[in-house]
Every structure is written in structure tokens, then in C-alpha cells.
């Protein structure tokens, strides 16, 4: 419960943070909300040599409307997204997802940039980002969500590269995210998202593999007129989830189908 010793530096700009990361090299970690990193450090499962704290960077906490897009600064907290009028209006599914992450303490501290960069397969934002073709903007480049979530906890980010913005398209049609878990503040055992967009459906799944999944087979089936129940049978196509203490692989696949059906049926 006591982390190993580490150096700590607080950056006041993206440039400074990048420079610090370069100086410390591979063993440095970026500290945003800290709600994934700090527990790992306390258990000594992560022992970074240095933390670069980016919470002092003032201009990374924003939600901006930009035509048909919504731009989220990397340091935007879950609680801000949860209560944002513009998000509720233009991208309500994200506000709903934000409202169900962890508990109040987590939502007050956790950031969208942190969740995306951490790339936990059980994270909720990555599913929505992938499903809606969001873009992840770093201090160097813009990466499409489909190219960003490479594997569990694995992204194309370089050691000194920092997520500065996540850009979502506006999507305010019928939608639903169902997060199936034992306790209200738990991570999803399986999550399923459905969003009506541009006349078609987008379907995303959480925690059914090493990365978030877009269930294109379900989208196709719906497009060709299948009923939700029939289409949702395809939600587990190609999935090979690993089992854990909460769910067997078969159960996760079953949940993917059931929750997808319910998400489509309950979307509003």
C-alpha cells in the first residue's frame, strides 16, 4: 500500500510535459486523474521511476462544439461530461456513460484522456470512441479510434506523446449503453452500446476482448432489416473473450448478445 519511490514533476504546458517524458524515458508515466495508475503503484504492480503530472496544464479541460464535432480536452473530468448541457444535447450517450463510471470520487478525478490512453478493455469511453469513429489527438498527430486501441493497455502512443484531445462526432439519435455489472460502481462485466446515426445503427461492446469491439455484423444485419433480436445474435461473432472471476468466456458472449438486443430495443 506504499508505492516504491519515484520522482515527481508537474508540467504547466504540453510542451513541458513532453520534454519531461523524453528526459525520464520509458519508465515515466503521465499522471492525469490517477484512478488507474495510483492503485497499481500502491500495490507496486507499477513502479514508474517518474510521474509527470499534467493536472497543472490549464487549457486541457474543455468541451467545445466544432460544427458536427464535439472536442473534449484530455483533462476533462467525468463529472464535467456527465453534467455538460452541450454533451447531453449533442452526444447524450457519452454523458450517460460518464455518469456510470466508478463512484463520485472517481468521476470527480478521472479524465477522458486518461481513460483513452490507459486503454483498459473494460473502459467505457473507448467503446463509444470506437463505435462512433472518434479521433484521438496527441501533441504530434491525430489517430482514428480504430487504429488507437491496439491491444489490452496498448496504444500507438510514443513514450513522450500525450493525448490532448478526444474528438467525437455529434450523435443525438436514439441510443443506449447497458453496463452489466455486479455492483453499481464496478467495471463492466460486459457493456453494450447502441447509437442510431445517419440512418443506421452503430453497435459497440465493452470487455469482450483485449480491445473495445465494434459489432459490425450486428450493424449490417440491422441495416438489411433484421429484427433486433435476430441481429443481436451476431454480437458474439468472432469474439474470443477471456474468462475471469466474474464471467466465463461463454457467459460474456451470451451477455454480448443479450445486452446488444436490449440496447437496441431500449434505445431512445
Amino acid at each position: 500500500m506504499i508505492p516504491a519511490a519515484f520522482e515527481y514533476a508537474r508540467a504547466s504546458s504540453v510542451e513541458e510535459a513532453s520534454k519531461l517524458l523524453k528526459t525520464y524515458g520509458e519508465d515515466a508515466k503521465v499522471l492525469a486523474g490517477g484512478h488507474s495508475l495510483i492503485p497499481l503503484m500502491r500495490l507496486r504492480l507499477a513502479q514508474p521511476k517518474a510521474l509527470v503530472d499534467i493536472n497543472g496544464i490549464k487549457d486541457l479541460d474543455y468541451i467545445k462544439e466544432d460544427g458536427s464535432k464535439l472536442r473534449f480536452g484530455a483533462l476533462t473530468r467525468h463529472v464535467t461530461i456527465e453534467h455538460s448541457a452541450v454533451v447531453k444535447q449533442k452526444l447524450p450517450i457519452l454523458a450517460e456513460v460518464a455518469s456510470e463510471i466508478g463512484d463520485n470520487q472517481v468521476r470527480n478525478m478521472g479524465t477522458i484522456g486518461g481513460v483513452v490512453a490507459h486503454a483498459d478493455a473494460a473502459g467505457d469511453y473507448p467503446t463509444i470512441a470506437l463505435m462512433l469513429d472518434a479521433e484521438i489527438v496527441t501533441n504530434r498527430r491525430t489517430i482514428a479510434a480504430k487504429d488507437f486501441f491496439k491491444d489490452i493497455f496498448t496504444t500507438p502512443l510514443a513514450a513522450d506523446e500525450i493525448v490532448i484531445e478526444v474528438v467525437f462526432p455529434v450523435a443525438n439519435g436514439p441510443h443506449k449503453y447497458i453496463k452489466f455489472r455486479r455492483r453499481l460502481f464496478d467495471w463492466a462485466i460486459v457493456g453494450a452500446a447502441a447509437q442510431k446515426m445517419n440512418g443506421g445503427w452503430r453497435i459497440g461492446l465493452t470487455n469482450v476482448g483485449p480491445t473495445p469491439v465494434r459489432a459490425k455484423a450486428v450493424e449490417e444485419a440491422l441495416h438489411t432489416g433484421a429484427k433486433p433480436e435476430e441481429a443481436a445474435q451476431h454480437a458474439s461473432d468472432g469474439l474470443n473473450p477471456s474468462g475471469d472471476l466474474r464471467a466465463s468466456p461463454e457467459y460474456k458472449k451470451h451477455l454480448a448478445r443479450v445486452l446488444t438486443k436490449r440496447a437496441i430495443e431500449q434505445a431512445e
Binding site: 455486479r182 455492483r183 453499481l184 460502481f185 464496478d186 472471476l245
Partner: peptide, 30 residues
């Protein structure tokens, strides 16, 4: 009845349910 269980690895004897993420105590919500 619903959630709690200490789960060990049958072979190595390691406790697998060693955090509150895996060892699910009830909260007020449940």
C-alpha cells in the same frame, strides 16, 4: 449469498480474489 467468495488458484494456491474489484462486498446501492 450473491457475491463474496475467496477464490484460490487450484494449482499454485494463489488467492485470486485479492482486491475489492474481485472480492465483491455489497454497497448501499445493492
Amino acid at each position: 449469498a450473491l457475491f463474496e467468495e475467496m477464490v484460490y488458484d487450484d494449482e499454485s494456491g494463489q488467492l485470486k480474489s485479492a482486491t475489492f474489484l474481485d472480492y465483491a462486498m455489497l454497497t448501499a446501492n445493492e
